[in-house]
Simulated assay, not measured.
Amino acid sequence: MTSLSPRSLLTAVLGAALALPLTAVPASAVLGGAPASTATYPWLAAVGSPVFFVRPSGQFCGGALIEPDRVLTAAHCVTLFRSVPGLLTATFGRDDLTGTGGETVAVKSVRIHPEYRETSFKDETVGHHDLAVLTLARPVNRRTAALGTPGPARTGWIAGWGFTSENDLFNTRLRAARAPLPGNAACERAYGDSFDPSDMVCAGSAAADSCQFDSGGPLIARGRVVGLVSWGYGCGRPGYPGVYARLDSLP
């Protein structure tokens, strides 16, 4: 969600590990809020890879378990892994990435939304239909996430393991924050034509926003996941809410 170095760091590390030509990969954590427990979000996955050794547990994105063997995440998180899905993992039940609790499951396939494409806004990569489904190597015995749309909700919750500010390089603790849903007009003012209300949801403020390494994580409203962290200009910058992938059409 910002042009800080971790985005280019993710590309560089994965590029060296996979020896593939890569494009910039946005990897958006929760600014504001407080530490949270995965017991509240048993379906929440830390998506990562052992090759991403700069982060504990290899985590670089979030995701939501939607079937016992299916995790919904942001497409931009996993496009590089379509031909090597076995390098991806999904970890559940780990409040702090430096710990060893919970369970980690390998990924056996990656399905990207057929209409996924990228444009740009300033230095940010804009993902359209920014959705992907990971098929796990085995089912997990966990409650799955309920999906929906924001409807009339004016506030929601965001959760992730990422940065708590643009300059926070070290947070590894799951955090959650209550974030406003200001409506499409707020993102249209901020991003112009880069914001497409047909496949994006506008959420967040200078006090509560997603940030680096939160991409693919949930926006929750009315007890349902209604969007996934996708992109935005910086983290918590006044006048620039976060943008979330709408879940109206899944891959």
Rank of each mutant, 00 (worst) to 15 (best):
T172K: 08
P152G: 04
N141C: 03
T98R: 15
A221K: 09
L169P: 02
S57N: 11
M200W: 03
S230Y: 08
A207D: 14
L80V: 13
V25C: 11
E188S: 11
A186N: 05
G99T: 11
F92P: 02
F195D: 05
A106Y: 03
E166F: 08
R173C: 10
G99W: 03
L181P: 04
C77E: 09
V133C: 01
L4H: 12
G160Q: 01
A75C: 00
A203L: 03
L14C: 05
V201P: 09
G93V: 12
F52Y: 15
G204I: 04
G239C: 05
S230V: 04
G15I: 13
L80H: 11
A90Y: 00
D95R: 12
G242Q: 03
R143N: 12
E166S: 14
A45I: 12
A221M: 09
V84H: 11
A145Q: 03
V107G: 00
G62V: 01
R154V: 11
S109N: 07
D196Q: 11
L181H: 01
F121A: 11
T172A: 10
A16D: 15
A90V: 04
H113L: 11
V107S: 02
R246V: 02
W157S: 10
L134C: 03
A245Q: 09
S165F: 12
P50L: 01
Q212M: 15
S230D: 04
G101C: 04
W161Y: 15
S5F: 11
C202K: 05
V126R: 12
C61E: 05
W157G: 04
F213N: 13
C77V: 10
L18A: 02
A106N: 06
T23A: 09
L87R: 13
P114G: 09
S194L: 06
K108Q: 15
S109H: 06
D168G: 01
D69Y: 04
R189C: 05
A206V: 14
W161M: 10
G223E: 04
P241W: 02
P6L: 08
V107M: 00
V105C: 03
G156E: 03
G63K: 00
